[in-house]
Nucleic acid binder design. Structure first.
Length: 1012
RNA sequence: GCGGGGGUUGCCGAGCCAGGAAAAGGCGCGGGGCUUAAGACCCCGUCCCGAAGGGGUCCGCGGGUUCAAAUCCCGCCCCCCGCACCA
């Protein structure tokens, strides 16, 4: 086999060189219709591998197919190097990181002495782009290499700057802040591959709701309660702290009571934090805090009581009619005035008096209680207790009620904890009134130490409430809203009125950086964002999506969802290779954000590489004109320093090639690159230049294992081609899987495929130069079958189903050819021209080589075979089917006879053909029966007729063609073949066939009697 | 949790959207041919039963619709992928 691969490699090199010399893949505008296909340019922090190979080969097969279908195809390629990984790699190589050296020598096949010199990003880019180009040429892609570029090229940077100015002008770039995973030690955001632990963790935003206490010494103290369910603020009965050390800290001017951990974390979240002193939470247990929201909602019930505390305050509040406004005023008095203190005093009095007023006051003012389940390393370390809806809260509270010694120890007044849960959510279609209580009881939870059960209960309650929960009257103006919709609304409202905040926290812990430091969530401020949440932008993209072709089609839904989900994206970074934001040079444009409309750059790249267009020519006026048609050639010429003619030429070429007809990509890029690709085209270009189609394909694994660039295993494209040949590699990867399902690279299967290709190669070589003979029945069968292969292949290629295409064009034709030869066909040459063309997009080198045995044109430029219906010969196909079936049946029967020698054949009685003829004109069994029974002759034998008809309708397809065939003739004509294949003598003498067998014969299934 | 895709005969993998074959193809395994022999190649078999081309059971689990379901409907279980600022 190695010999064959070596021979292949020589053939491949030869034709690659011929193609290059003849420049057949260099595409310039002409009168043909154009087809512009692009593939995402690869990121060069390593060698191209067989995963790239899949996406690229699909692209190349389509490019070659379309070219042969008469399109002027543009298939360009560039290289992506902006971003951080290349810098990271250079650093690792520079410091001789062992693991990196191992992976790059072992898997990326970089010779060690070369690798060790790659200590700067520039050297890495230089080396890997050369290697990539070699690999892409080695496999014979039909790329127009005049257009290659790298994303750090100066002209490219001009192009990106132009794009960003455009987006800025359109108001699509905004400033904002956002949370990132951050390492305090490295003082940098931490990327996925720099994590030691916690890769699964996501950043969640807790809503912080501030409750207020009052202290003689420090004044107001804020108890910032963190929750994922802000709506539960309406059902707070107390707050929980863990009986351990906390801190009092000045946070943006207010005094906050938070866990020590939280005081550290807050510093990274845009907060100014000054720790005043460490405190023991026990000191605060039993003290009271004011819930400003409830105070605002219930103020009218206690307004009169305020009069004696503060008359002016009373005046101010009682004047306000509007409920919402009053709530805001109350909150304001708590936050900025001394209403909190008054309410706490009022609570004391109401408690002494008891009664209804106390019931009201205890909703506004709640006690601080101790609980062991509180995690000080989660958010602020202070939580609200909502026993109606949180099993932990309910159980902890019940726990506390039972434990007098704890109450004594903390000096908690028992009357403070005689608390009833306050329900605020109704669950649609469920019996629960106070879910946390009922579910806890159902599960038999007794103590807050039963964490497993409590977690389970919490899950049940949260799930039901989230999906089917509706807010009750207790939530004031939010009543009637769905729980699933409330979070964002309420968080926003709380922040707006001044008692809410956001605390970012990891969903799982710990999250540890490679350096060993625990990561925190940091809020980056004043970052530039692409405003993908912009509703007009979004809806334009959504509308255009409906016009597009997405392959496979169910990905359209996926795209729809992802477009909806896409939020503003930070497009600026501090570190990495790339282009600076033109109006804020501190920042680099993030590397996915500079790869959105670069397909347009391929048109410019040709001129740049020819030296006709330089970075300094690429002025905004020039780009405006050639890419958008804004302004005119004169102005563009003046501004750029290019002559008008060149400017016009570039403009014309752009207009010829754009838009992108197909972008074929790996499925991993759907949620990022492909979305941005759509958004940016739609933002920048006029509608006629928006992308037409996107196709996605799956990954490639290695002997069932996932490949990894940074850890291995990995198979480079170059090695795959060197070991197996370009055409073998191509055919394998195209046939290994379809669409988004993943392909597995298996050495054994690849080798077996090489065997198939060798057979094919030898077969064609043997038959191709033979004289054409006149067509006989068998040749017509072959041609007929071949037409179906053509149709199937074309159909599959139109849908980018390379697996189906290869199956039809290669394997199925191969099977037919095998049968054809076995049947003694020796006119194979009649399909060979077309067969080679049919296969040329998949295995271009072999096809080119074989084609040249007879022709001196390039097969790569020939026209693709057309389906020719006149060559379809159903009868010839029926005859072959008959022969095959006959052989199978005879063999089946021969199994039961030792040493079979003679086979006697009897054909079906005449009446059966008659019945069949009538039946074939009817649609149903019933109809056929009634029609047939009109004939007296059949009526006499109704039983037999009905039994036969049943069979006929069971096997309709076979019987459908039978009345056209003369069975006796077929067997007689092929007697020699049949006897040779079956190794018996076949005698068409029905007198030797027993009666019962003869009667069971049917058209298409003669009676067979074997004699030993 | 949300969204998308899946669970097919020893394995890989078609088919299911447009219901009607023990269910393509490949691999593995077994047998035969060819060959001095091995490999390659060609043919046959590979769920169970059957000494005549036949019968039975089968496509995650449980129901339903239908003359007929791997294919349609309902419920359940399980698996994979994405959830971002990273290419």
């Amino acid at each position: 086999m190695q010999d064959f691969v070596q021979e292949l490699r020589l053939i491949e090199k030869k034709w690659q060189e011929e193609w290059r010399k003849a420049r057949i893949f260099e595409s310039d505008p002409d009168e043909r219709p154009k087809f512009f296909i692009t593939i995402p340019y690869p990121y060069l922090n390593g060698n191209l591998h067989v995963g790239h190979c899949r996406t690229f080969t699909i692209g190349d097969a389509v490019a070659r197919y379309k070219r042969m279908c008469g399109f002027n195809v543009l298939f360009p390629m560039g290289f992506h190097v902006t971003g951080t990984p290349i810098i990271g790699l250079a650093e690792l190589i520079a410091k001789r990181d062992e693991r990196t050296i191992e992976v790059y020598t072992k898997f990326h096949d970089v010779p060690e002495d070369v690798l060790l010199t790659l200590t700067t990003p520039e050297k890495i880019v230089e080396y890997f782009s050369q290697e990539a180009m070699k690999a892409l040429k080695d496999i014979g892609y039909s790329i127009d290499w005049r257009r290659v570029f790298t994303t750090t090229d100066e002209p490219y940077q001009r192009f990106i700057e132009w794009q960003y100015w455009k987006l800025k002008e359109k108001g699509l770039i905004v400033k904002g802040s956002h949370p990132v995973r951050y390492c305090p030690n490295d003082e940098n955001p931490v990327e996925d591959h720099d994590l030691l632990m916690g890769e699964e963790a996501t950043i969640v935003d807790f809503t912080v709701i501030k409750l207020y206490s009052f202290d003689e010494e420090l004044g107001k103290i804020v108890f910032p309660c963190a929750t994922l369910r802000p709506e539960t603020v309406f059902g707070v009965t107390n707050i929980w702290v863990k009986p351990t050390k906390y801190v009092l800290a000045k946070v943006d001017g207010e005094v906050w009571f938070v866990s020590k951990e939280a005081s550290e974390k807050l510093k990274y979240q845009e907060k100014k934090v000054e720790v005043i002193r460490e405190v023991d939470a026990k000191e605060f247990v039993g003290k009271l805090v004011v819930n400003p929201i409830l105070a605002g909602m219930l103020i009218d019930k206690i307004l009169d009581d305020l009069k004696e505390f503060d008359e002016k305050l009373y005046e101010r509040l009682s004047k306000i009619e509007d409920e919402d406004e009053r709530l805001r005023a109350v909150v304001n008095e708590i936050v900025n005035g001394n209403l909190a203190r008054i309410l706490i005093d009022l609570f004391g009095r109401a408690k002494a008096e008891g009664g209804e007023k106390f019931d009201i006051m205890r909703r506004i003012v709640v006690p601080i209680l101790p609980a062991e389940f509180v995690d000080t390393d989660n958010a602020t370390g202070v939580v609200m207790s909502v026993p109606a809806h949180a099993p932990y809260d309910y159980v902890a509270l019940e726990d506390l009620k039972k434990k007098d010694e704890i109450l004594r120890q903390f000096g908690i007044d028992r009357s403070l904890i005689e608390i009833e849960p306050i329900a605020l959510i109704r669950i649609e279609g469920e019996k629960y009134k106070v879910p946390a209580v009922e579910v806890s009881k159902e599960l038999g939870i007794e103590s807050q130490k039963q964490r497993d059960l409590l977690d389970k209960a919490t899950k049940i309650v949260y799930k039901k409430e989230f999906h089917k929960g509706v807010l009750l009257e207790t939530t004031g103006k939010y009543a009637g809203m769905l729980v699933s919709k409330i979070k964002d609304v309420l968080q926003k409202d709380l922040i707006e009125i001044g008692v809410g905040d956001v605390f970012y926290e990891f969903s799982e812990k710990p999250v540890v950086c490679r350096c060993g430091t625990k990561c925190v969530v940091k809020v980056v401020r004043d970052q530039w964002f692409l405003n993908y949440s912009n509703p007009e932008w979004k809806s334009k993209v959504l509308e255009w999506l409906e016009e597009m072709t997405i392959i496979p089609d169910y990905y359209k839904e996926e795209f729809r969802n992802k477009i909806e989900w896409l939020k503003d994206k930070a497009c600026a970074r501090r570190k990495g290779l790339g282009t600076r934001i033109p109006w804020d040079k501190e920042w680099l444009i993030e590397s996915l954000s500079d790869s959105t409309i670069y397909m347009a750059y391929y048109i410019l790249a040709k001129f740049i590489n020819e030296g006709k267009l330089k970075a300094e020519n690429m002025t905004p006026e020039f780009l405006d004109y050639v890419l958008l048609g804004i302004g005119d050639a004169e102005k563009a010429s003046q501004s750029s320093g290019l002559d008008v003619e060149t400017v016009e030429k570039i403009r014309r070429e752009f207009l010829y090639w754009y838009p992108v007809d197909l972008r074929s990509s790996g499925k991993d890029l759907v949620a990022n690159h492909l979305l941005f690709f759509l958004f940016h085209h739609i933002a920048i270009f006029p509608k006629e230049h928006w992308p037409r189609a996107i196709a996605v394909n799956g990954y490639v694994s290695l002997e069932g294992k996932k490949m990894s660039k940074s850890k291995g295993p990995l198979l480079t494209m170059k090695r795959a081609v060197a070991e197996n040949g370009a055409d073998v590699t191509r055919l394998y990867i195209l046939h290994a899987a379809e669409y988004d399902s993943d392909a597995d690279w298996r050495k054994k299967d690849v080798e077996s495929l090489a065997g198939h290709l060798r057979r094919f190669y030898n077969l064609v070589k043997e038959h191709y130069t033979k004289e054409r003979k006149e067509l006989d029945q068998l040749d017509r069968w072959l041609l007929s079958r071949f037409q179906k292969a053509v149709k199937e292949t074309r159909d599959a290629m139109e849908k980018l189903q390379t697996r189906r295409a290869v199956n039809a064009a290669f394997f199925e034709v191969m099977n037919d050819v095998r049968w054809y030869l076995r049947r003694g066909g020796d006119n194979l040459v009649v399909i060979l021209d077309d067969w080679l063309k049919l296969l040329a997009p998949f295995i271009p080198h072999i096809c080119e080589e074989l084609w040249h045995l007879k022709h001196d044109t390039f097969i790569s430029l020939e026209s693709y075979p057309e389906f020719d219906e006149s060559k379809v010969d159903e009868k010839a196909e029926a005859v072959e089917d008959y022969i095959r079936r006959f052989m199978e049946d005879v063999k089946e029967v021969m199994k039961f006879v030792e040493e079979p020698k003679e086979v006697y054949v009897a054909f079906a009685e005449e009446w059966k053909s008659e019945v069949l003829k009538i039946a074939s004109q009817t649609g149903s069994m019933k109809e056929a029966m009634s029609k047939i029974m009109k004939d007296e002759k059949f009526r006499a034998m109704a039983k037999d007729v009905s039994a036969f008809l049943k069979r006929v309708f069971k096997d309709r397809e076979m019987f459908a063609v039978m009345d056209e065939l003369n069975e006796r003739e077929i067997i007689e004509e092929n007697l020699e073949f049949l006897e040779r294949e079956l190794g018996v003598k076949i005698i068409l003498d029905e007198s030797k066939v027993p009666d019962d067998k003869r009667r069971s014969a049917m058209p298409g299934k003669p009676a067979i009697y074997v004699v030993g």
